[in-house]
Design a protein around this nucleic acid. Structure first.
Lengths: 333, 333
DNA sequence: TTGAAAGCGCTACCAT
DNA sequence: ATGGTAGCGCTTTCAA
């Protein structure tokens, strides 16, 4: 390979241990020696082999963000947050996508990957936290929470978010409200569905099974499920999509069928997005602090890495949400 | 740390070298020994420390995709392509964002990062390819081309793309055509600008400096530059945005100022996007095979890694583009 | 077919 | 303040 610490030591007429001390900015090195070593490094164009260092120290200064989908701006926004605080602390952030596939997630935890990183920011794709814990690496869960797990996590108040949306709909006279949901595996599915159910009950609106549709979390599911909804004899007057991708899918379907959002039908969504802002009249939605989720997640992880658990006495952080009113809700008489 | 190759060797009553042979699926191991070792591995829950292996073999089986912005769906789409072919060949794809900042790019090449990976897929942020070459790692450039550099790259026909857009505009009677461009550093800036210039000349339309605006490649630049354009005494009838983000920024600005795209003004853009499809009447644009760019880039890189340079006699691949007509172009009398 | 041993490049401990 | 040296976990000769 390239030039090693030994080459530098020889060149500077010192011992490798001295070079190591200089490289790592440790004290107990005389200015002259330090200079000699630095000159040698400069001269030889030496760069330290961090891999070799990692195997000794057990620290790589890499963390990895494991997310389902890199094309979802929610996750990229979270990653941004992670990266911004991690880089300030001298950590590099890698990104790995699972496409919601458990097998890809396994790659991360079955050694292949987890050795290379000091810690993991994870949006899990399955509900058994054993595999995660087995890796032995500090892990912080973001966005989703594994039911019954005690892992560190940062989520938002999903229940409240849906409640906000539902009340906006009901306030505008809607009673035929359909929900387009992802799978009911994690809190993001379950809490949101509960928010729907409870609000319906609270306002004494009969819950109709035909208005409740679940699929995966992707655009095509939103499209597909909306299509089903529109084929009903008694179609809903409002659709509530429980994440940004589903919402886009819903909107696409509505557009394709010539329906005008905010006029012929109402559409609201969990999660804001560029699309939600500019699609038709603007989609009324619930917004959460995505960057902040990443930032807090990273801070938790760094605290874990530095064994400063006191910094995060709470294993679970739950962030607030806010309603963003735009023009996608029809006012019914 | 965890259980090492030595533990396995002891447990199975063999030498570490034998365990190593089993792990690496080498021959010259008797079935019985192999079984004993595998049992020991199973029993002890051993996972190989790839980091330690890498320091010997010099191969990590990681590649990294270095892109300016992870929130830009163009790049995430390219990354998808990279990842899909890399994973088939047993490589893991890491993602690192530079935010167009040279300093962040340096992290990749100043050793910190480049040691950990076998190869790099790069969308460069600066035009000096020396730093890149110095890393000694195989590199494939995607999207952008460094002027005068002989590095392996895969790009699209930027010149043609703009020509297509310009002709569509001119066909519809436009002559006051403004261009909202990114910096003229790489081919993506230069070729697109040349496409604009040449087409204007070809159709004998006088080029007006006030209609030519350049900024960075981001949404806010599109917004800002469009704003300038609209304040002109003699504003353009059509705006050509030279990437997806600029286009979205243009659209936002137009919306905010109450202008209806496809009616009050025309907007066309380089790059398709979800936004472009559903924004207002749909934005007419030029589409390129983004996934394919990543795939080809990864194939090139893998060929380089495997020293099969014959597989890619051409150092430069240029992909075609196509015009996608939608409703954002006003037909002038 | 198997084992012993010499590194890979670096860190960290123990001497000096 | 500096040097010598024993590993880190693994691969890879070279012998046996």
């Amino acid at each position: 390979m390239g030039v090693t610490i030994k080459d530098v030591a020889d060149y500077a007429h010192v011992a490798v241990s001295t070079v190591s001390r200089v490289i790592n900015n440790m004290d107990r090195v005389s200015p002259e020696t330090r200079k000699a070593v630095n000159d040698a490094i400069e001269e030889l164009g030496y760069v330290r082999n961090n891999l070799a260092a990692s195997i000794k120290t057990g620290k790589s200064h890499f963390i990895v963000a494991v997310v389902p989908d890199i094309r979802n701006e929610f996750y990229t926004s979270v990653i941004r947050g992670v990266e911004s605080v991690a880089s300030k602390e001298g950590y590099y952030t890698l990104v790995y996508t699972t496409a919601e596939a458990v097998s890809r997630e396994q790659n991360v935890f079955d050694g292949e990957f987890s050795q290379i990183v000091d810690g993991i920011i994870l949006t899990p794709s399955q509900t058994d936290d054993l595999m995660y814990k087995k890796s032995g690496k500090p892990i912080v869960i973001v966005d989703r929470e594994i039911p019954g797990s005690d892992m560190y996590s940062v989520c938002v108040d999903n229940y409240k978010g849906i409640t906000l949306l539902m009340e906006e709909l009901i306030r505008n006279g809607h009673r035929k409200i359909a929900i387009v949901s992802g799978p009911l595996m994690f809190n993001i599915g379950i809490d949101r569905m509960n928010g729907y159910m409870d609000t319906m009950k609270q306002y004494h609106i009969p819950i109709k099974k035909k208005y409740i549709r679940t699929g995966e979390w992707f655009e095509e599911d939103g499209y597909h499920l909306t299509n089903q909804l529109l084929q009903l004899k008694d179609p809903p007057t409002a659709i509530l999509a429980t994440n940004n991708l589903l919402c886009i899918g819903c909107a696409e379907c509505l557009c394709d069928r010539g329906m005008v959002i905010g006029k012929d039908i109402s559409l609201v969504g969990f999660d804001d997005s560029v699309m939600a802002k500019y699609l038709g009249p603007g989609i009324t939605c619930v917004r959460r602090a995505t960057n902040e989720m990443g930032e807090i997640g990273a801070k938790m992880l760094l605290a874990l890495l530095n064994k400063q658990k006191e910094h995060f006495p709470q294993r679970k952080v739950i962030l607030d949400v806010e309603l963003v009113k735009r023009g996608s809700v029809v006012k019914l008489e």
